[in-house]
Simulated scan of single mutants.
Amino acid sequence: MLLLIPGPVQTRPETRAAMAQDIAPWDNDFRPTYAAIREQVRAIAGGQEGVHATLPLQGCGHFIMEAAIRTFVPAGGKLLIAQNGSYADRALRLATEAGRQVVALPGPDTRPVTAEEISAALAADPAISHVAIVHHETGSGIVNDPEVIGPAVRAAGRRLILDSVSAFGALPVDLAAHPEIDAVLFTSGKCLEGLPGIGFAVARIDSVTAAAGNAGSWSFDLSDVYQHALRAGWGSFRFTPAVQALAAFQVALGIYAAEGGQPARLARYRENMRVLRDGVQALGLTPYLDARHQGPVILTVHQPADPAFALQPFVDALKARGVLISNFHNTKVPTFRIGCIGAITPDDMRGAVAAIGGALDALGVRQREAA
């Protein structure tokens, strides 16, 4: 089965094989593995030794996002969220239920937020201490570029939380060049092509230290994660982790380095996207985004207007042809989305395009323009 969702992603056999072992996460033989992972991902983020630290947390991207909000934004503090997609909507809920004041900056999910919009919102409310953006909006596929937004946040003297869960490892991040970023957030099961189970924050040590006592939650306190590492060592987890996922992640990081790191990973995903986008357009389908706003992670496509089309039967027809995609959409209009990330190649995407055409034919979908 070819898994074409934006995470968990298709993985290499050797990555999956690393899961097939029993491991004690606090055993001295495993500590160097975990400590090395922290160093490797800090380097991918452009972090600096003594300035940035890798702070892992068990769970999914929502867990690490809530932890970052609770840790860096004081209780009752104000947070600006660029609300141009479904995952920004989720960040808004996480922040609100954590007792933070959210200032929403609404926008369409068809284009990135601009530096001018961020600057204007910050100028209008000096009480806002932090900005949160979703680097890649997995609902639609747009990219909110920290190279555009970061300077605006820095010029206003505020702080930035970068949710890069579905982008990290493919889209570049350079923390050394962005002192305004308190933390970049990501998970093990997306563009780094590991298995799901671990969230990561690569964070500024001074920001983490200053945030002690903010979280109001032991589980979601990144400051406590940092203090634990100082006490027990960088190879020690606070609570029982998904340790097999960590072992698999070490293998995935080795594959990532051998491929050529971030530039090579991005180049492969971009070619996957090009093949897929050209292919679906040749089938008469309509991409949701303009090409200039299309990120490399997922292609979102308008559902066809033909009454013979329905999403679940289409997903089932694709699955019967060896391709599995998401059976839901996060856009305001009916769409379907196809992932371009994971251990997949442009040839895999050509096969996926053929499967899409076959599924549409089998369902009798002739009118393929947007509904």
Rank of each mutant, 00 (worst) to 15 (best):
F200N: 02
G77F: 05
A232F: 15
Q58E: 13
H135I: 09
S223M: 03
A75K: 08
Q58A: 13
Q367L: 06
R42T: 15
D174W: 01
S223P: 00
Y256W: 01
V143P: 07
E137S: 12
R31A: 14
G233K: 02
P126A: 13
P296K: 00
V275Y: 02
L79R: 03
R265G: 02
G85D: 06
A371Q: 12
G77N: 02
S86Y: 11
R159Y: 10
I255M: 00
L266K: 12
A232K: 14
R42P: 07
N144Y: 06
I341A: 11
E97F: 02
H228W: 14
D316R: 06
G139F: 05
N144A: 09
A75N: 08
I161K: 08
A121R: 02
Y87A: 04
A201R: 02
A95D: 00
G358R: 08
G197S: 05
V51C: 12
S219T: 14
A359W: 05
I44G: 00
A152Q: 12
F328D: 10
G295P: 01
D290L: 13
A67P: 04
A88S: 15
Q101I: 10
V102Y: 01
G199V: 03
A98T: 07
D347M: 01
V202L: 05
L266D: 08
G284L: 09
I118D: 00
A229H: 05
Y226S: 00
A242G: 05
A170G: 06
D182W: 01
G47V: 12
V280R: 02
A252S: 15
A212Y: 07
Q58T: 07
V51S: 15
S129W: 10
V323K: 14
Y226E: 07
